[in-house]
Nucleic acid binder design. Structure first.
Length: 488
RNA sequence: CGGGGAGUGGCGCAGCCCGGUAGCGCAUUCGCUUUGGGAGCGAAGGGUCGCAGGUUCAAAUCCUGUCUCCCCGACCA
């Protein structure tokens, strides 16, 4: 069968929604801008969560939980922070309803003295708490992560990429020195890069945000930027060096070895269910979702094929032995024993849900001691020996994981262009899209002008060395080329 | 929040202009035949047409308001 090609036309949005729907990941909720994550979607998120959690623990972090509601006054303590989030907050103003004719209404007598904000992020409530946790240098560092939901009253929403409520993880650390906090920021950036590339098979560019794209209240915002199949960029994760901004705002000090009272240094970092959107738009095709084996809730599905009861019995027995063998090897395998659907239907359904490998077994295979192995990523089918099948599949899953990354990497490289002039920049943006490296003079004015004229933003100033040159717009000096793209 | 489009059985849509009490495809249920790429035939069930108000003898259809979704902008993980 010919390899299917992913839609990259103007109906990319529709394609994306179709994939989400066919894969049973999530659906729109009647509640404005929110989504219902279905069991299939949640299983995927849980796998991502578990892998990340493991990486956090390896780097010395622990999980904790902080309140959903934040007093309004907390939010205003850090000036930049409140400015960044003020326009998109859900605010609790009353504490009860009362029955009236024809329904209920908000009881005006229950107005809160101080309104509560539904957290858009937890820096403020966490730093208010850290004040009490930290007295001495012996209390540092604090390396805490929280898995939670947050709410941002977005103007425009999009399944997984920008919902009013989303699930995420937010790490909040406190350190005695600037160096240690910077190291932590970079370490977590590397954790995100590694997760994106090694688990999601999604290549990313690491770098630092420009001042205008920086997190509200941060000194530096580092990020991983991925490129989707339609040539638009997606910010997939951020790691912030917060300096002493929150320590100042919440008066968090410690007594150091030298007896001096000092302000604490902070970081925060997060990734969200947006990663699921990134995963979909990186790998999926016209047949539906493609999930990298490491994250797939089901890695292998066995589809039995039979006509008569006798055949069914023989094929099922063959399948169950096979299933047990795969499970013993630690492979997440499943046998689709539903007799209410035909094999062709099951093939299509499991493809839409992105299961990396399919095994079809029928009377012929039982007879010959074979199985039919089909890859989701390439649609390649092979009749394979039943002997040593668990090892064959283990290796194949690893191959698929690597191939998916390589395929995505090639796609990204083909959609990445270096330009010298602004005219070339505009032309590439219109005709090709994707990532564009270009010289920029480092001023917010030029950045703003490019954004207004082309809708492209500076995704990041990439890590690493680069040769100096002249800004493509103003001709002024530029230290290095920066990464531009139109973004989600 | 500005511009455009749309809300009609579970899903996708027609009907609306020109008011007369709702229809098609898929899905569902039952029966028989099928089963190595999304089955076929026959029968059945399911909707006060997003919500609220108005006009009218009569509203899915006309009017007003409102909520939600999609697309394009401004804002954003």
């Amino acid at each position: 069968m010919a390899q299917k090609i992913t839609k990259r036309s103007e109906d990319y949005s529709q394609w994306y929604l179709d994939v989400v729907k066919e894969a049973q990941l999530a659906e729109h909720s009647p509640v404005r801008g929110s989504m219902v994550i279905k069991p299939t979607g949640m299983a995927l998120w849980e796998n991502m969560r578990n892998a990340l959690d493991e990486m956090f623990k390896e780097t010395g972090h622990e999980n904790a939980y902080f309140p959903l509601f934040i007093p309004k006054s907390f939010l205003s303590k850090e000036a930049q922070h409140v400015e960044g989030f003020a326009k998109e907050c859900a605010v609790v103003t009353h504490s009860r309803l009362k029955s009236v004719e024809g329904g209920v209404e908000v009881d005006p007598d229950s107005r809160l003295e101080e309104e509560l904000i539904v957290r858009p992020t937890s820096e403020t409530i966490i730093w208010d708490t850290y004040r009490n946790w930290i007295q001495s240098y012996r209390d540092l560092p604090i390396l805490v992560n929280q898995w939670a939901n947050v709410v941002r009253w977005e103007m425009r929403t999009r399944l997984f990429l920008r919902t009013m409520e989303f699930l995420w993880q937010e790490g909040h650390t406190a350190h005695a020195t600037r160096e240690e906090a910077v190291d932590e920021t970079l370490q977590m950036l590397e954790v995100y890069r590694s997760f994106a590339e090694d688990y999601m098979a999604m290549p990313v560019i690491t770098g630092v945000k420009t001042a205008s794209e920086r997190f509200a209240g941060a000194e530096d915002t580092y990020c991983i930027e991925a490129l989707m199949q339609d040539g638009k960029a997606l910010q997939a994760g951020t790691s912030h060096f917060l300096g002493q901004n929150f320590a100042k705002a919440f008066d968090v000090t410690f007594q150091d070895k030298d007896g001096e009272h000092k302000l604490v240094w902070a970081t925060s970092w997060g990734v969200s269910t947006r990663l699921i959107g990134g995963l979909i738009m990186t790998h999926s095709d016209d047949s539906g979702l493609v999930i990298p084996p490491k994250l797939a809730p089901k890695q292998v599905v066995i589809v039995p094929i039979y006509r008569s009861d006798e055949e069914q019995e023989a094929v099922f027995e063959y399948g169950h032995t096979l299933l047990a063998e795969l499970k013993a090897k630690g492979i997440r395998a499943h046998m689709d024993t539903r007799d209410t659907y035909k094999p062709g239907f099951k093939f299509a359904e499991h493809e839409a849900r992105g299961i990396p490998l399919r095994i079809a077994i029928g009377p012929r295979d039982v007879q010959n001691n074979k199985v039919e192995l089909a890859r989701r990523d390439t649609f390649e089918k092979n009749i394979t020996d039943r002997e040593g099948i668990a090892d064959t599949i283990s290796e194949l899953l690893e191959t698929i994981q690597k191939d998916l990354f390589q395929r995505a990497l090639h796609r990204r490289d083909e959609l990445t262009t270096e330009v010298e002039s602004y005219d070339e920049f505009k032309q590439v943006l219109e005709e090709k899209g994707g990532f564009i490296y270009a010289h920029w003079d480092g001023t917010p004015e030029t950045e703003e002008r490019i954004k207004n004229e082309t809708k492209a933003t500076i995704r990041c100033i990439p890590m690493g060395e680069s040769t100096p040159g002249k800004c493509m717009v103003t001709g002024n000096d530029s230290k290095k080329k920066v990464l531009f793209a139109r973004a989600y």
